[in-house]
Design a protein around this nucleic acid. Sequence first.
DNA 1: TAGTGGTCTAGACCACTTC
DNA 2: AAGTGGTCTAGACCACTAA
Lengths: 262, 262
Amino acid sequence: MPINPVDPRPPSQQIADDVRAEIEAGRIPSGGRLPSTSELAARYGVTRETIRQAIARLKSAGIVSSRQGSGVFARPRPAMKRLGINRYAKSLWRDTGIVAFAADREASSRTWSPGDQTQTVSEVAADPQVAEAFGVEPGTRMYERARLVAEQGVPTHTLTSYYRPSDVEGTRLVDAAPGPAGRGGGFAVLTEQGLEPHEIQEDLTARMPTPREVQTLRLPPGEPIVELHRTTYTADGRVIEFARGVHSASHFTWSYKFKIPE
Amino acid sequence: MPINPVDPRPPSQQIADDVRAEIEAGRIPSGGRLPSTSELAARYGVTRETIRQAIARLKSAGIVSSRQGSGVFARPRPAMKRLGINRYAKSLWRDTGIVAFAADREASSRTWSPGDQTQTVSEVAADPQVAEAFGVEPGTRMYERARLVAEQGVPTHTLTSYYRPSDVEGTRLVDAAPGPAGRGGGFAVLTEQGLEPHEIQEDLTARMPTPREVQTLRLPPGEPIVELHRTTYTADGRVIEFARGVHSASHFTWSYKFKIPE
DNA sequence: TAGTGGTCTAGACCACTTC
DNA sequence: AAGTGGTCTAGACCACTAA
């Protein structure tokens, strides 16, 4: 469809909408390459720069991504992993040594290698959020366990857990060894310490990523993130873990099923 | 900070990062106006067009928004409304006639006027998602109740519910009257029909909005949306409502608390 | 090496807001 | 009327990829 000079939308917007329609109609397949910017410029009778503006709009919308020297491609939608509360089921980590982390992988029937997770443990001062979760003063020393989780080499999310030093000191949780908390997972370790997880609160919010998050998760333009806050309690209401996750939005769905309260 | 020619980041990126830092440090207050593009151009020794590129980056990141003829402004972060499962509590709609919808408003201690919600009811053919939720054939006739919810005149989300015609035919739910389902809310009506809601499943996913969603929710550039799917069951497992919500991400946090399953 | 996307400039015109 | 952001052009150069 050529440019319509009567159309109130500027040419770059018309072109963007046009290309978007091509993609959504499947005429440009998912993952397929768009015509080169020069060709589009000739086709629509505008400058290459105008085409770039149109492409820029589509990038912000998460529709396409570009590789310099190679082309502009319709962004394929990755398979979504569904995160339900059963990923925390006690049977998964109580005796078996399987952990929620690995259970997620198995549920999605994709191969998993331990190298998909990198982990660093350090002692840090509690920021206000962490402090509030534990009910301590900001600045209190805490253990921080930061993980970057990848799927087939593609980073999908970060997950940073905080623990009271007195709860985890001397356990394998605070070893710097990579993998799911040494072995057995954080919940198993806490259980061994007499602090069995019993209840979880999860808070979710979505936003655009910071430049730093773009870098560590290698996010394409137009990819939002979901920030997850997880607070874990024992049966008597004691907070034993607070975790912050940053998830590449297009890889996940969260699913909760609950009885309607009185 | 002037442009650094050795820096690998292109000038427009350096400027964007620079301005972002100004905002995050509070030197440009939330809601405040940035210097004009001409002034920034002079300050950094680049063209206005380059400044526009820098601003474009910040817009995609949801950091600023611009009003033609007026200026570019640091986007204020709206107060977040926390959505917990108590917004569905039976006590809120069973006898009182208050509905989850209105209860949300009260919990957030903001004034609410019925005009904040517009509603249209129609009969439609089930799309695949709706069909799957109810376990019927795609194309089956269903009632659709579409609502656009606003907060102080600002649209915050849409919510479109689907019902089996046999469940709601002849009730005030299918009146085209505006407001929360006439009066009493959808859950109250279903209860009167002998179909008391008992369990809910919510699925959440975040993504960038479609052009259509941008229009109806009047979303600024760089604002992601959260798509919420809600399926409501009776005590014997019958699906009585399926709803799809599209929420402007920066207005909401979802909060779930649950016991860790065995 | 040829082709791709990424960036920038200098200048122009337009649409909108504010005074 | 003056100032603001929005868009487009024509041309140039650069960085990267693939043959």
